[in-house]
């Protein structure tokens, strides 16, 4: 099911953060949202996840308005990975990943066979099986990122919305996580991620949405959106387009636009 926004406007307090945003995100593809700091990327992802109300316009999953979907059902359809990898208590990794099953469980119900299988699959997909009995406090940054991704995957959502999942990861783990997101999209899941790095976006994303001051500068296939003019408009930077070994065109920032 397509996840779409139409003429969306969102405010935080009295400040208008997003205006006239229109875009349709496709399942089975990785869409990267990019933009300068404060351009409204996180706000857009939270609104897509149904966590913020729109002032105007709407967010739809297929033909249904996201605001009218009951929160638990919405949680089963859309998995959201927040920007800060917070874990407030020192939960064991297995319990942490099991939190992803909450929308599937009725109050006071214990874990079902389905829950156990989904948790096992999520641990396997993120290669975190070996960490299952460790406490969250004993994880490195990379391990924690993988475990929190496993938490979202355990919910078996149709959409995965991740806000800056690469922040605080070293290059190896960044590449690993991006490969994982691509693999998930290949299974038919819709993946929307907020990124900062133009090169990572060019490598991992099928589509790119560029935001500037809350408005869409460009939205389309990565090769078109990550071109000279849109990047000049969105970031005020000049880029050199360099092909990588697989022929993908990578935009390397080389200076500010004069």
């Amino acid at each position: 099911m397509e996840l779409s926004v139409s003429d969306l406007a969102v405010s935080l307090g009295n400040r208008r953060v997003l205006s006239h945003v229109t875009a349709a995100f496709q399942p089975g593809r990785v869409t990267a949202i990019l933009g300068a700091n404060g351009s409204g990327k996180s706000t857009l992802v939270k609104t897509l996840a149904g966590l913020l109300d729109a002032d105007a316009g709407h967010v739809k999953l297929g033909t249904r308005h996201i605001a009218r979907i009951e929160p638990r059902e919405r949680a089963r359809l859309i998995g959201y990975l927040p920007q800060d990898p917070i874990v407030h208590w020192n939960l064991a990794v297995r319990d942490l990943v099991a939190l992803g099953r909450l929308p599937h469980r009725s109050p006071f119900a214990g874990a079902s066979q389905d829950d156990a299988m989904a948790i096992g699959a999520a641990l396997a997909a993120t290669d975190t099986h070996a960490l299952a009995d460790r406490g969250a406090d004993q994880l490195s940054g990379g391990e924690r990122a993988r475990v929190l991704l496993a938490r979202v995957l355990a919910g078996e959502p149709q959409w995965l919305l991740a806000d800056e999942p690469l922040a605080s990861l070293d290059p190896v783990h960044q590449l690993g996580l991006l490969d994982q997101l691509r693999a998930l999209a290949a299974t038919g899941m819709g993946v929307v991620i907020v990124l900062h790095d133009l090169i990572q976006a060019a490598r991992a994303a099928d589509d790119v949405l560029l935001l500037k001051a809350g408005e869409v500068v460009a939205f389309g296939p990565a090769s078109q959106a990550l071109a000279h003019q849109p990047l000049r408009d969105a970031f005020g930077v000049e880029v050199m387009i360099v092909p990588d070994e697989q022929g993908r065109l990578l935009p390397v920032p080389i200076g500010r636009t004069r």
Binding site: P71, I78, G79, L81, P82, D84, I86, L99
Partner: peptide, 11 residues
């Protein structure tokens, strides 16, 4: 445990 935004995203 995962913060307010994640809790809301879990329904």
């Amino acid at each position: 445990t995962l913060g307010e935004a994640a809790a809301r995203s879990l329904g």
